[in-house]
Nucleic acid binder design. Sequence first.
DNA 1: TAGATTGTTAATCGATTAACAATC
DNA 2: TAGATTGTTAATCGATTAACAATC
Lengths: 216, 216
Amino acid sequence: MKKDQRPSYDHVPMVVIKRLPKYYRYLGELVEKKLERISSQKLAQMMDISASQLRQDLNHFGEFGQQGYGYRVEDLYQEIGKIIGLEYQYNMVIVGAGNLGRALANYSNFCLRGFCLWALFDIDPELVGLNVNGIGIKDISELHDFVADNNISIGIITVPKEAAQGVADRLVAAGVKGIWNFAPVDIKVPDSIILENEHLADSLMVLSFRLRGKMG
Amino acid sequence: MKKDQRPSYDHVPMVVIKRLPKYYRYLGELVEKKLERISSQKLAQMMDISASQLRQDLNHFGEFGQQGYGYRVEDLYQEIGKIIGLEYQYNMVIVGAGNLGRALANYSNFCLRGFCLWALFDIDPELVGLNVNGIGIKDISELHDFVADNNISIGIITVPKEAAQGVADRLVAAGVKGIWNFAPVDIKVPDSIILENEHLADSLMVLSFRLRGKMG
DNA sequence: TAGATTGTTAATCGATTAACAATC
DNA sequence: TAGATTGTTAATCGATTAACAATC
């Protein structure tokens, strides 16, 4: 029986997973500041959470600190990066070369972090053939072969909501493992496919609700 | 003592508030389909949640259904819109006219829904004076007076992370009530100011974590 | 060693689910 | 009326916080 090299971290609650990027972000800042060590107490205070929660969260993934000393900032930063999976390269395509798709394509930072964008796709002949930040816009008809041939693991959906489910189906059929959906609709994918939604309008509505009573 | 016209909905858990936009979205689709009534059972099934949770959630805001009948789709849709606060107009500005700022400015749908964008601001003289989707890009030095003079209630931050806190401070000083932050950093604002973060890189990291074990 | 701080268990708090009386 | 479905209370489940023994 082949032993799995990487821990699987099954059963880690979603609520904990969602906090990992925040830990990574704060530790990254401390690394930049060349801070060597930090206690759960101090880090938690910076992040406006409880030290208990911080230690409890880390406990899901292993032991990273030293009693009486705290955590080595650089080490913990690297460890959390590994837990998140940042040592891998993810090949990505964007479907929908409208404003949002092009804005994401221009966000070239992503590639530095291992999230590499290789193509945009659109149905509009006016856009096909154009170039965004050095990345070509291809016709949607080429989507399947491109994804299958280039080991694309993430598909980003930035099409209007009416087209989103169809695009998702095609991405899944072509073999992506994950979908990052910006269309304002809940698309359906098989259980084996990871789906992350970015419902911008939803956030704006939460903001609206919370503004109640604060308006002039 | 003046009676407040609008319910305050204090003490409604954040986790419930975050589900409101999803209810609104699904009900909107049913309205489009001209469906007249729906039971908590059926709506919950569509949304992939439990009927208990749906009824429990609505219960925080009032009674909207009829025993033995269910909910009138159009009515519930309107009610939830009101709860969210969509009957108000929110005046907005974007600070940071880079790719993301311009992409949001082009998303003209927002204005139809009562979220009206009146200006973009940037520090780059090359951008100042340009026009995005009919909305002018102004110099950042004009921010304070513009916000104060035009009853701007929401500031959208799409500047690099180093500049984000400074921009937030200026927006707050100028009088915005809420901030929608896209910079990948946790900015600090007074308790009275509503802050919604849109940390896109965080979502991508969650996607990365969840892809663990699924990669080739 | 003594002081500090972790890893981890136990206690508390809050959210979800189940159940059902009220009632359309 | 009988059947259906809500509003709401009680039971369960899960997440957060508190506490402390282990140990650097």
